[in-house]
Each structure stands twice: as C-alpha cells, then as structure tokens.
Amino acid sequence: MKPAPFDYHRPDSLDEAAALLAELGDGAKVLAGGQSLIPMLALRLACFDHLVDISRIDALRGVERRDGTLWVGATTTESAIGADPAVAAAVPLLARATPLIGHAQIRNRGTFGGSVAHADPAAEYPAVVLALDAELAACSAAGGQRVIPAAQFFTGLWSTALEPEELLVGARFPVWSGRCGFAIEEFARRSGDFAIAGAAVAVELDDGEDRVRRCAIALLGMGPTPVRAAGAEAAVTGRPLAELEPADVGATAVAGLADVPSDLHGPQSYRRRVGAVMTARAFAAATAEAAARPASAGAGNEAATSG
C-alpha cells in the first residue's frame, strides 16, 4: 500500500459531510473522484489523517437548468458532463473542454468539483469556470451556503478561496444566448497530459455588423492560477470582426502576464508563444462559429444548437 494511512469517512448527506469537515479541520481532505488526489497520496506528495468521501451524496450530483442558468453539481463526473446534451446546449464551452481532460478512464471517475477545487492552473474546468464567470457554491457547518464568484475563487497554485471546513457544492453557469461562439484550444506533449498552455474563449457578436459585443478569454497553464486575458478582451470588445486579427488577439492576451512558468517543457518565452497561438486559434474558432449564426433577434444559441 503506497499512501500513508488515513481514516475514511463516507457521509450520506451534505449536512453530515459539513459536520465532519468542521470537526476534523485541517487534517481532513475531501475525496470525490480521486483522480488527482489518489496519485498525490500514492506518491506521498500529500498526506491527510482523514479523507471524507462525498461521492455518495446524491444532492451533489447532476446537471440541471435553473432559472436561465446551468447548475453543475460537484460530484458530477466528467464523463457525465461530456455526454449530457443539456450541457452541450447551454454551456458549450464546458462540453468542449471535457474531452481534453485526462483519458476516458480518468473522466469516468473524475468529477467537476474535484477538478475545480484542486485548481490546477493547467486544468480545463477551472479555465472554463473563470472564462464564463460561473458562481461557485460552497457550504460549511457554521456558515451555511455561500457563493464565490469565479474571479475570486482561484487564489494561487492549487489554492482556492475555500476554507478547510468548506465543501464545494457545485457551480452555476450563465447561459449565453445570441450570436455566440465558444472554443478551447490547448497544447500538450502527450494525449491526456496537462497542457503546456491553452485558452478558452467565449464570444458574442452583435446582429448587424459582426461587432464583438462581449468576449471572455481564460488562459490555462500560463501562471499559478488560470487567468483572464482582460487586456485582450477589452481590445476586441466593440470592434468589428473584420478588423481583428486572431494572432494579434493572442499576442495581446499573453503580453501582460507576470508569472508565466518555466519548466522542463520549456522556458517562459516558449510558453508565451504557445499561449498566444492557442488563444489565436480559439478566438478564430469561436468568432467563426458566432459569425455563422443567423443575425436575427431571438435566435438564441440554444435554438441554433438544437435546431
């Protein structure tokens, strides 16, 4: 047995899980799918006295439409998200990010909440959550439920705004309608590896002149956390597509980044170039998809997708 010994807890309800986390404090770690946690335990990169397995709590699992948003429960597996037509229709970026995560065997166990709470800077779901300004719901025994905006959630390398006694319950995604396009592009040395760099892009065009009404770009692998390319977003918003060169958008996106990592895969300068190219490709794909949608009021994204 490779991991260090730990005590295992398997609560049946959210209240029970929150009570356990309150009682066990720092010595406890939440176990969902375990696809990041178990390798870390096996390699003894991490060690906990207690694991709290939340995978059997029914209330944490599943995807549903709620008041014009899409709710994704924390223990919904990546496979389930990838196969759910409601996700593909309402939040295409989330659906398109899913096949890029690990391998099929990983996605069968790995969960949405596990990926977000683990907060690897090169992971796909954290970048999607950040790009779309999802609202993350957390709960604790003492504080009850609270909502954390994605922009405040990722605080550092593998660090989040969650308190030790808090549990991620799920996320609420806004549903973009109108002439929208979505794309995620990443580069990894081998299939299933964490990406060296990547970008998730969501864009909406106005009806008349193909001007960019809004644009969200999140970069992954380009710092200690996923990061929004706010400068590039501002540079394209309000401008007609015909004036925008994807390569320029990519270059702007990586221009101001402070903490681009340098490692065995390559120096900072290489990662910047890869990040710029991935952003350019994702921007080109997202804008092409949006531009191909008919410019008529009320032709929502979902209508176009399902029709």
Binding site: Y8, R10, L31, G34, Q35, I38, P39, A42, D53, S55, S79, A104, Q105, I106, N108, R109
Partner: peptide
C-alpha cells in the same frame, strides 16, 4: 490496471477498494 466498475472503465490503482 483498467477494470470495469459498474460497467465504466476505470483505473483500479486510482480507486480505493472502499470506494
């Protein structure tokens, strides 16, 4: 170490028996 758990292919080294 791939096995099927409730029909889904998973890595049995990344799953505790208790799970």
């Amino acid at each position: 170490c791939t096995v099927l758990v409730d029909g889904a292919a998973v890595r049995s080294c990344l799953m505790f028996a208790v799970q």
